[in-house]
């Protein structure tokens, strides 16, 4: 197995280098899996936590929020452990001894970022299920394009029809997300109105 320097590993994640990602799977995932198995977790949960931790690190590294001295392997293992105990195992005691020397942040922030990343994953999965026309219209809308532009670009006839079509697409997307069993787990502490559309 090749070994990686700290910088090379972090850069490999930022650049989404396949051999780096393979290395992370080979080197770190078995230990994350073993830790989660020991506390009664299953394979899919271990894999989900592991992938989401890498994505969280990717976001931070890309935003320049990670120090060069960060030991990627140790960081990922600790994030996985925190997330497992805080979100899946409900055991706070096992996390209190952890601290991050190489990243200026609290455990709560890491957990919140992890949850946000999982929410985005859920939203993105449902967005991908939309038909191509809805995807295009919503994408243009999210990018801040006007209804006039959307109506013209996608030959919807008028600004009003573009508005109506966007409403229907977004409504469909929100319903699809709300019907997902994951929705309750990720957003469940709030009420039904969160995604209410006018």
């Amino acid at each position: 197995m090749n070994s990686y320097s700290k910088n090379k590993l972090l850069n490999g994640i930022v650049e989404q280098d396949s051999s780096t990602l393979n290395y992370l799977y080979k080197k770190i995932f078995p230990r994350v899996k073993r830790m989660i198995f020991r506390y009664g977790g299953d394979y899919d949960t271990a894999n989900e936590i592991f992938q989401e931790s890498i994505i969280t690190l990717y976001r931070r590294a890309k935003a320049g929020e990670v120090k060069e001295s960060l030991i990627v392997e140790k960081y990922l293992f600790r994030v996985c452990r925190w997330v497992w105990f805080r979100l899946y195992n409900n055991n706070l005691e096992s996390t209190i001894d952890s601290d991050f020397e190489d990243i200026d942040d609290s455990e709560d922030n890491i957990i919140n970022e992890f949850l946000q990343s999982r929410r985005k994953k859920l939203f993105s999965e449902h967005f991908e299920k939309l038909d191509i026309e809805c995807k295009r219209i919503l994408m243009a809308f999210f990018k801040g394009k006007s209804y006039e532009y959307i109506g013209n670009k996608y030959k919807l006839g008028s600004e009003e029809k573009a508005r109506r079509k966007k409403y229907l697409c977004k409504e469909f997307l929100v319903k699809s997300i709300k019907n997902d069993p994951q929705y309750r787990k990720l957003i469940g502490e709030y009420d039904e109105d969160l995604f209410q559309t006018d």
Binding site: L21, R119, K121
Partner: peptide
């Protein structure tokens, strides 16, 4: 943002492949 994060979608695909 989730709809517009092309890089994250690509990273997820690569991670699935690595898996």
């Amino acid at each position: 943002r989730s709809a517009m994060e092309g890089d994250i979608i690509s990273l997820r695909e690569k991670l699935n492949y690595s898996h």
